[in-house]
Design a protein around this nucleic acid. Sequence first.
DNA 1: CCAAAAGTGTTTCACGTACACCCATGC
DNA 2: GCATGGGTGTACGTGAAACACTTTTGG
Lengths: 229, 229
Amino acid sequence: MPYTYTYPRPALTVDAVVFGFDEGALKILLIQRAHPPFEGRWAFPGGFVHVDETLDQAVRRELEEETGASRIYLEQLYSFGALDRDPRERVVSVAYYALVRLSDYRIRAATDARAARWFPAAHTPRLAFDHAEILKVARGRLRGKVRYQPVGFELLPEKFTLTEIQHLYEAVLESELDKRNFRRKLLAMGLLAELNEYQTGVRHRAARLYRFDRRRYQELTRRGFDFEL
Amino acid sequence: MPYTYTYPRPALTVDAVVFGFDEGALKILLIQRAHPPFEGRWAFPGGFVHVDETLDQAVRRELEEETGASRIYLEQLYSFGALDRDPRERVVSVAYYALVRLSDYRIRAATDARAARWFPAAHTPRLAFDHAEILKVARGRLRGKVRYQPVGFELLPEKFTLTEIQHLYEAVLESELDKRNFRRKLLAMGLLAELNEYQTGVRHRAARLYRFDRRRYQELTRRGFDFEL
DNA sequence: CCAAAAGTGTTTCACGTACACCCATGC
DNA sequence: GCATGGGTGTACGTGAAACACTTTTGG
């Protein structure tokens, strides 16, 4: 059933830069394209926005379809509208970035058998479309965000060690941090609940586990508290 | 000549929140709608994105058409995609915000005789569509931006006094600032060129005029300098 | 006992913040 | 001469940054 308009319309898509954190490095989820254009190249999960769904709904649908992931942190990034970003026709894409707990579940490949894989954010294969630019914007945004909003925890397992979160910050900020200063400042905010549990399976002294205290954060935020690291 | 697609497509528009600064207050430019829906209500300048123009080009074209303003500071804000934001059909809008030197030129009404007027950003009439929400996002973004990027100068005349820029910051941040501390910090950055010119036409001691030194800013930025107020 | 990472305090310095009075000018 | 805003300096306290050694555990 065709749809007709008085003036030509750009196609509208959404794309998602999905970040994960694993083995001390920031990762992103890519899907290998099975068809032209850019056949064989890697690209972000994404697709067309249906007329009866919001932009957010469109991204969540695509992520669910292509990765099986739901209930993830999602934020709109930027809309890309260069004329030649898709060689087939005019396509405007609203890009999002997502943060997932890589530890919680392994991303499964989509049903249509396209390969889905995690790559280090710093070393990806050549990307399709303008996705290299989108990635750059996404990394910059995450770098900014992580400093004044407690979004880093979205990338960590429920229980984590202070060293793990420090490594996460170092990966996102692309700089080394001082262990003592980092811990002092983080703990001083009072957002971490100290657990009576410790790492297991390590061949050195086991580190204490912590949990991010969401309620406490909301409480403090209501009182005008500003997260800042 | 009609255009036909296999699947229905949302319409794509751009809208611009145009900020100005005058009489010590932050202003925004609104246009009174001449036709339904929301006939008579005020709204941001904006319109459909043509298939052969980028998003930025679309905003600039609309601003030029509706206000006569070109060469203004422009930045993409957010894309709004709620299902019912336009009662006629599904419309996704990419919102921008713009900063103009209200002092440089008076905005003229559009050729089609719709009224264009400046309103205090804090006290607007009821807005059409979801423009009240867009305005809220725009003000928040400007508030954040102004603290770590020297965009405030886009709103001021070429030559300005320290008190003027302080009032601008107070209007944007919605808080009072200490005169001595503000001046010290601003001058310490070395981004202002002190002119040997003074205010005229005031009935008190005339204040010295300054100019924002763009070259200096670019030079410092290249060396890793971070603007912060 | 060795390797590996956990955990812990103090000093220094820069910067943010609070605060009040005299000066220059136009009318 | 008076009203109006312009212009200026200091003291204090907080927080960022730099920095090294002991402890615990598993193998």
